[in-house]
Write a protein that binds this DNA or RNA. Structure first.
Lengths: 139, 139
DNA sequence: GTTCATGCAAATCGTTTGCACAATG
DNA sequence: CATTGTGCAAACGATTTGCATGAAC
């Protein structure tokens, strides 16, 4: 699943757990963007029997609670594109279709990244999320 | 790996193959963004013994040749983010670090997507690719 | 003929899930 | 005590890889 946020947010009555609290604390303590595996490494000292299942289940809960975000493109599998030219994408949150947009590519956006801080920008990508024409009609 | 394009592009002297030609043709014939599995389905009639290995190996070659693009965020695994506020990302093509940018989020970008065509935009994401300060310094 | 591509199967990797037991409210 | 969370291990789905054979140059 993608960053979604929709779906009748019927959380079950979450109970607190030491592990989940530590996961959240760890994520808040850093601005790198850790992976599940990194969390596991950091926490297995604290919880010697920690398991990946716990990490993933808690990540899921925290995302559902809106306390953290998950950076992942649309779905699990790679999508291919024979259109090699520069273009933006629209991703339908309903049917997961990915479509090319014929918008002008705003290279000027790249000027906003502070070169002063040492960034060297080569390119940028933009994805719009929402409902594609077909799904919008059905809504 | 991510959309990369770097790495000493020492292609071996690729030889042509019926399968690869058909894969490219298929990708060019559509503007949906097929998955490896979709290609497999379409082609197994034509090549009854086709294997997934062949699909993936050829996708890799086509990408290396710059003939197609692969849409995938940074890496294979999800990255987490405790920064829930709206922000853009910078992704280092060298060390794969993902960093939050403190740029203003340009919601006006979303107006460019032609609502006239029926798109309903909910949000958008921007990722800048290049060298992070650390890697830029070393270059 | 040497090199690259294929098919097949096994392997890998990140993630998910079923189950019995422990912790929470 | 009713329910949610944990650890463990097995299951999963997408992708990768080793190897013997077949096609390309």
């Amino acid at each position: 699943m993608a960053a979604n946020g929709k779906k009748s947010d019927k959380h079950p009555p979450y109970k607190r757990s030491k592990q989940r609290e530590r996961i959240l604390a760890l994520l808040r303590s850093t601005d790198t963007h850790p992976t599940a595996n990194w969390l596991f490494g950091k926490l297995k000292k604290e919880f010697p029997n920690l398991s990946m299942g716990t990490i993933y289940r808690n990540i899921g809960i925290l995302v559902r609670q809106g306390l953290i975000g998950r950076i992942a493109f649309g779905s699990t599998f790679d999508r291919l594109d024979a259109n090699v030219s520069d273009h933006y994408h629209f991703i339908c949150e309903k049917c997961n279709a990915i479509m090319d947009l014929k918008l002008p590519v705003v290279r000027d956006l790249e000027k906003q990244v502070p070169a002063s801080e040492g960034f060297k920008v080569h390119r940028h990508a933009v994805e719009f999320y929402g409902l594609c024409p077909k799904c919008a009609k059905k809504a």
